[in-house]
């Protein structure tokens, strides 16, 4: 296997007396879907927040393409091509699909209108948004200026994934993308995830849904007590094994232990 695109060693994060991350290691390889599973309180949210810049670890180092990086904010991580789809989706319901896709990185017009009057280039942004949605097979969206609140849960998730896929050049992190969705909508989002992977962007998928994890993941990072317990291959392992590992009912097998 090639070198990891995103790697972390010895990540540590404490909240008062609680150690959320305890010298945790992490590796994501190019072109793969890595699922991160773990029981509630295992520290997987903190791990993801550290990787996406939302929290700053107390210790340890994150490497992107082999170079050490430090993120002071989600914008820093975004700046180097790591996009996160939060469980809450981080969208403004009253604003349009286009506005939401470009929130925080709007395109201004060139020339005087853009430089002096700071006018946004709405046409360019709408074209881009339409193209990105079409790339992911969401082209049945008729009106790109429709407020996000008029979309269904699955459509919103689709727009959020499209936003991440549009700007995430290195890594896309998806936090519980199917948790709030119905069966059909979950199915569509899983297809979206595979579409994104097929275009070469590696994905970190946090999920509690074992069938979904086992269906799409190439490797499964089992998180327990603030660190990586092991990485398992979904082909060599059953769902009940995975659940047993993450709850501590089973010791990690030596062969696949990290």
């Amino acid at each position: 296997m090639s070198d990891p695109i995103l790697k972390a060693t010895g990540l540590t994060k404490r909240y008062g007396k609680v150690t959320a991350l305890d010298h945790c290691d992490f590796e994501l390889f190019p072109g793969e879907i890595l699922a991160v599973i773990g029981d509630n309180g295992a520290g997987k949210s903190t791990l993801i927040k550290a990787l996406s810049g939302a929290v700053q670890p107390d210790g340890g180092t994150i490497y992107l393409d082999g170079n050490a990086v430090a993120f002071g904010s989600p914008n820093d991580a975004r700046g180097v091509g790591i996009e996160t789809v939060y469980q809450t989706l981080a969208m403004s319901p009253a604003l349009s699909i286009t506005d939401n896709m470009f929130m925080g990185r709007e395109i201004r017009k060139s020339g005087v209108m853009g430089q002096v009057f700071r006018q946004l280039d709405k046409a360019a942004m709408e074209d881009f948004a339409r193209k990105k949605l079409a790339d992911l097979g969401l082209m049945t969206i008729q009106n790109i200026n429709q407020p996000v609140e008029t979309l269904s849960g699955g459509q919103r998730q689709g727009v959020a994934v499209a936003r991440a896929a549009a700007f995430g050049s290195k890594v896309i992190i998806l936090d519980e993308p199917t948790a709030a969705l119905g069966v059909k909508e979950s199915r569509r989002v899983l297809e979206l995830i595979q579409d994104v992977r097929s275009r070469g962007i590696p994905i970190i998928l946090i999920s509690h849904n074992m069938p979904h994890v086992f269906e799409v993941a190439d490797r499964i990072h089992v998180h327990r007590l603030g660190k990586r317990l092991c990485v398992v291959n979904p082909k060599d392992c059953t769902m009940s094994d995975a659940v047993a590992l993450m709850t501590g009912a089973m010791e990690p097998p030596e062969a696949v232990a990290a």
């Binding site: 809450t88 981080a90 969208m91 403004s92 319901p93 009253a94 929130m103």
Partner: peptide
């Protein structure tokens, strides 16, 4: 005004 948390996460 719509959702301050979402705006912050989206990079505002």
């Amino acid at each position: 005004g719509d959702d301050p948390e979402a705006a912050q996460l989206a990079g505002v």
